[in-house]
């Protein structure tokens, strides 16, 4: 059996992964005790690949990638190993991180509506990324930034360049954030629920943009989302997280057609589908566990319809179910 800390990349791909994460743990020190937000997460990300991260609210999706970028809140601490282009970057110096952030690895934050500085013009906020990393002149940076704004379908970019964030709608601010993350053509782009604030048509356009990015460039994309439809349309690999752990990792096809973990099956069952009316739309009953005192067994066991004795006492490790498909569950065979 394979220990979860040494979990292999799900699908063998040519070459070194651009981002390699091993046994990542994140905990927060709070007044009420120690919260384990991320527990032993490992994955590989290859060039041009799109990795989807799904899981309920609070499952540690965002904190995983904030930790990788060194952006945890001051009460948070990360352990483990994160290797970007062959170089260890977890808990490295601020100087090294600054050279990576925005240039090699960029992130579109979940709450990007409040993510732009209110008292700086949009143009300045975009251009400073290029002057910082590329040493571009003002006019070079400006034309590149305008290009990016057009790419994310901001109408009249030249006029909007001089505007302040409050003059933009929520959806437009989100698109500015996406443009900002793309400026330096990063090796890794992390998109944390990038389409939640957008209406359906713009959402489709933006997803198309991401899709084009994943298909036609070398940029590796991490797509954090609640929307399994987005994962199906965009991603190559999926990691399902529960209570800070990866409980299933597989290629998209394998995960959708042959889910191995009861939690994943639960998520899939909750997906709205054309052949079901909306009344049967459900959520998995029950609550995720308290992260400050995780149970000794499987964290999902209290909610799992198929749980048995062993699930409550022994934590399942993330093991190979079939080739390229990892699951952390004691159930041997999927029904």
């Amino acid at each position: 059996m394979m220990a979860e800390t040494t979990a292999r990349p799900v699908r063998a791909q040519g070459g070194e992964p651009v981002l390699q994460c091993r046994d990542l743990n994140v905990h927060f020190q709070t007044g009420e005790g120690r919260i384990s937000a991320v527990n032993g997460v490992s994955f590989d990300l290859h060039r041009g690949q799109c990795l989807g991260i799904v899981g309920e609210s609070g499952s540690g999706k965002s904190q995983t990638f904030l930790a990788i970028l060194g952006l945890l809140a001051s009460n948070g601490h990360a352990t483990g190993s994160v290797v970007l282009n062959g170089e260890e970057i977890l808990n490295t110096s601020r100087r090294k991180l600054n050279a990576i952030r925005g240039e090699k690895m960029a992130i579109v934050f979940q709450d990007s509506i409040t993510g732009l500085t209110p008292h700086k013009r949009i143009g300045e906020q975009l251009c400073e990324v290029l002057t910082q990393h590329r040493g571009m002149s003002r006019s070079e940076a400006r034309s590149r930034a305008l290009e990016m704004l057009e790419l994310v379908r901001i109408p009249e970019p030249a006029r909007r360049f001089r505007m302040y964030p409050h003059e933009f709608s929520g959806g437009m601010r989100q698109r500015v954030m996406i443009a900002q993350a793309l400026l330096c053509q990063p090796d890794v782009l992390i998109a944390d629920e990038p389409t939640t604030a957008l209406d359906v048509t713009v959402q489709a356009q933006i997803l198309k943009l991401f899709k084009g990015l994943a298909d036609h460039t070398d940029t590796a994309l991490v797509m954090i989302t609640h929307d399994l439809g987005v994962v199906a349309g965009l991603c190559d690999e999926v990691m399902v997280m529960y209570a800070g752990r990866a409980i299933e990792q597989a290629s998209v096809d394998s995960l959708f057609y042959d889910p191995r973990h009861p939690y994943t099956r639960g998520l899939l069952a909750c997906m709205p589908r054309a052949d079901r009316d909306s009344e049967s739309l459900t959520a998995i009953p029950g609550q995720p566990p308290d992260l400050s005192e995780l149970p000794p067994g499987c964290a999902y066991a209290p909610r799992c319809p198929q749980a048995f004795d062993r699930c409550l006492t022994e934590r399942p490790s993330l093991d190979l179910a079939v080739e390229g498909h990892l699951k952390a569950c004691h159930l041997e065979n999927a029904p």
Binding site: L71, I100, G102, E103, A106, E128, Q132, M177, Q180
Partner: peptide, 8 residues
């Protein structure tokens, strides 16, 4: 946080 994520 955004400003930090830009590498400033």
């Amino acid at each position: 946080r955004t400003a930090r994520a830009k590498g400033l």
